[in-house]
Design a protein around this nucleic acid. Structure first.
Length: 297
DNA sequence: CGCGTTTGACCAGCGC
DNA sequence: GCGCTGGTCAAACGCG
C-alpha cells in the first residue's frame, strides 16, 4: 500500500507506516521538537504522561504549534477526552469510543472467544474499537524494552518498506487489554518505536527475578538498551537519542479513569541517571514504582 | 508443566 | 470488487 504524501496524521499514528513516515517525512529532531514545541524545552516522558494533570496548556501547545504539530493533531487516537473544549470538539469527529470499553469489550470478547475457531467471526457490525495510543522512539539495540509489565508476544509481521518486522505484544495480566507494538525505524535501525495501546488496569506486577528476560532487568535492561541516554539527560541535552516521541494528544488519555499508565522504564530513566535530578525525582518515584524496582538501582 | 515465542493463516479495513 | 496491508489468532514449539 503506497501511502500518499499528504498522509493524514491519523494514518501516521495508527498505521504501520507511522515510523516510516516519521523518519522519512521529517527529521527525528523535528519530531522531538514537536514534543517541545520547537523550542529547546525538552519534556521528559513523565512530564508528557502526567501532562493532563500538570500542564493542560500543552493541549494548546499542540494545537498552536507549527505545521508538524498540526499534522500530528488527529482525532483518531484521541477520544472521549473532554480535557479541553477544543479537545472534545475534535473527539466528536471520531467514531471510536473508549470509555465504555471496559465492560462492553469484555462481553464482546467472551462471545468472540466462544465462537472463535470457526473462522472467528470477529466484530460484527461495529467498527473495531481502538484504545488510545501513544508512541515513542527509543534508541536501543533491544527490541522489547522492559517496562515493568509482563507482555506476551502474540504476533509478528513484516512491515512494508522496512526490513524489520513489527512485533505485537499484549499485557499478560488477565482482563488487561493493553497492547504494544514494537518495531524498528527502517531509516535508523537503532531506533525502536514502541506504540502502546490501552491503559493498564492494574499496578505494575511484582515480578520475580526469574520472570525477567535474560540479560534484562529493570534497570540494566534499559541500560543495555541505551539507558545511558535514557536518563534525565534527555531533559538537559540536545541529544537526539532516547527522546520519546509521543503522540501527545493520545498520551493524555493515559492515567484517566483512575488507572494510570506509567511505563516504568520512564522512571528507570531517572534511576539510571546519576546526578541531582535523580534524588529529586525519587520522592515522586517512590509513590509510583514498586520498592523492589527501586532497589534494583 | 507453565509460560512465552514463533509462525502461518485468517480477517478487516482501506485505496484504487 | 479486488488486492494489499495491518492486526490477530492459535497450534506448535522451546525453554526453564
Amino acid at each position: 500500500m503506497e501511502r500518499k504524501e499528504d498522509l493524514k496524521m491519523e494514518d501516521v499514528l495508527v498505521n504501520s507506516s507511522f515510523s516510516d513516515y516519521i523518519s522519512s517525512s521529517f527529521p527525528l529532531q523535528s519530531v522531538f521538537d514537536f514534543c517541545c514545541e520547537g523550542e529547546t524545552m525538552p519534556l521528559g516522558f513523565m512530564e508528557l504522561l502526567g501532562v493532563q494533570d500538570l500542564n493542560p496548556s500543552l493541549f494548546d501547545m499542540a494545537q498552536q504549534a507549527p505545521p508538524v504539530t498540526q499534522k500530528i493533531e488527529s482525532p483518531a487516537e484521541v477520544l472521549n477526552q473532554p480535557a479541553t473544549p477544543n479537545f472534545s470538539s475534535i473527539s466528536s469527529a471520531s467514531s471510536e469510543t473508549v470509555n465504555d470499553e471496559t465492560v462492553k469489550v469484555d462481553d464482546q470478547e467472551e462471545d468472540q472467544q466462544k465462537t472463535k475457531k470457526q473462522l472467528k467471526p470477529k466484530k460484527t457490525n461495529q467498527k473495531r474499537e481502538r484504545e488510545p495510543r501513544f508512541a515513542f522512539m527509543t534508541k536501543s539495540e533491544v527490541d522489547h524494552l522492559e517496562d515493568g509489565y509482563r507482555w506476551r508476544k502474540y504476533g509478528q509481521k513484516a512491515v512494508k518498506n522496512s526490513s524489520f518486522p513489527r512485533s505485537y505484544y499484549r499485557c499478560t495480566t488477565p482482563s488487561c487489554n493493553v497492547k504494544k507494538r514494537v518495531e524498528r525505524s527502517f531509516t535508523d535501525p537503532s531506533i525502536v518505536i514502541t506504540t502502546y495501546e490501552g491503559k493498564h488496569i492494574h499496578p505494575i506486577p511484582i515480578m520475580p527475578r526469574s520472570s525477567l528476560p535474560a540479560g534484562v532487568h529493570l534497570s540494566s535492561g534499559i541500560s543495555a538498551a541505551g539507558a545511558s541516554s535514557f536518563g534525565m539527560e534527555i531533559q538537559r541535552t540536545p541529544s537526539h537519542y532516547q527522546q520519546p516521541f509521543v503522540n501527545t494528544l493520545s498520551a493524555f488519555n493515559f492515567g484517566q479513569n483512575g488507572s494510570s499508565f506509567n511505563p516504568s522504564f520512564l522512571h528507570e530513566r531517572r534511576f539510571c541517571s546519576p546526578g541531582p535530578s535523580l534524588l529529586k525525582d525519587h520522592g515522586l518515584l517512590q509513590d509510583i514504582v514498586p520498592r523492589h524496582m527501586l532497589k534494583e538501582e
